[in-house]
Design a protein around this nucleic acid. Sequence first.
DNA 1: GCGTTTGCCTATAGGTTGTAGGCAGACCCA
DNA 2: TGGGTCTGCCTACAACCTATAGGCAAACGC
Lengths: 205, 205
Amino acid sequence: MAVVRAGLSPERLTLAGAELADEAGFDQVTLSALARRFGVKPASLYAHVKNSHELKTRIALFALEELADRVADAVAGRAGKDALTAFANAYRDYARAYPGRYEAARYRLDPQTAAASAGVRHAQMTRAILRGYDLAEPDQTHAVRMLGSVFHGYAALEAAGAFDHTDVAAQQSWAWTLDCLDTALRCRSTPLTGSPTPGSKGHRQ
Amino acid sequence: MAVVRAGLSPERLTLAGAELADEAGFDQVTLSALARRFGVKPASLYAHVKNSHELKTRIALFALEELADRVADAVAGRAGKDALTAFANAYRDYARAYPGRYEAARYRLDPQTAAASAGVRHAQMTRAILRGYDLAEPDQTHAVRMLGSVFHGYAALEAAGAFDHTDVAAQQSWAWTLDCLDTALRCRSTPLTGSPTPGSKGHRQ
DNA sequence: GCGTTTGCCTATAGGTTGTAGGCAGACCCA
DNA sequence: TGGGTCTGCCTACAACCTATAGGCAAACGC
């Protein structure tokens, strides 16, 4: 019987796990299922990943990185509302195209792992977007959190099917929401002179 | 040996499951763990709940109901921004006080179960809040989704510890966000007369 | 008191996690 | 080319969770 090695590696396991997550859900990502996918016994995987938690952590880090790359691509060369929209769409599109990976990206990481993850790039890019809105600290931090909440919340609710029961397209609500955020952020901008009137267009860049 | 019946019932199992979720996380809610909590064998629970999925569904429905009750209490007799803040705080406070139940409330329900759940009350109450902002359809639906996204997103990110790394209190960002939402919604209101505020592109679908 | 129902039990099977140790092909070097 | 080592996947096993089937005794109705 020709014994052919499966060619396992942490990277291949991570990628296959991400694919499995997209197909069956992140909670279905198990070492047994992954072993079946490679035509291998479960115990063999322990030579490449320490345990189930490490595998999931690797998938989470991979997804965070991939998402950050896409967002970075999307916002390159854009500013203001244009950048906000590009960022938001890249985010939502990823969550829709790769639901399992997106779910993985929300896997709880221990603090130091999180600090070394692409999660920090996400925060940095969000701050970059906000440069177009002239927000001083701590308002900028507040805005980072608000945007993160909206993006994640929308993706999560949409994925959960929460928008399926009403006959209004999720796409339209998304556009409306982004428009609303842009307006709100411009209202909050701190122009060098003049009164902060609602709807002031004092954002540079 | 005095045989004392444990007094199991679907309701007691649901409540105990909710408590277990708050203590150890919703993913740790297992029939075995629940059986241990009652000093009973796992198989005994199958006389009261069909399987693990049904138990989790019951906990989810319970949490949705409980959360809806709290929100209803909070918004009673309030309107406008006052109501918005009360709604939002009731929501966030619940997520912080009962993280496991809140997680359970996001458990994926099949469509008809969801339609019969307290989830519809949540949507109705959100619409009630928005009566103070004079939004015509489909803007009202858009706003319902945006608010839901922010509330859920903020609770989820906060629970995940996403706000722990920056030295700005989550409470302040929360207040800022609510203020921002109030402003944005007022900008979007459709007064009987007067010019649309800058930033609104007359999106009436 | 008798029969039925209720409530939890034991026994059992299958699936997933994780550890320990074995074996053979692949690789390195002389 | 041959010998030694390393690598990669294996079997075996123990523990835990889910789920089903069937048993037994207390509780209940009359």
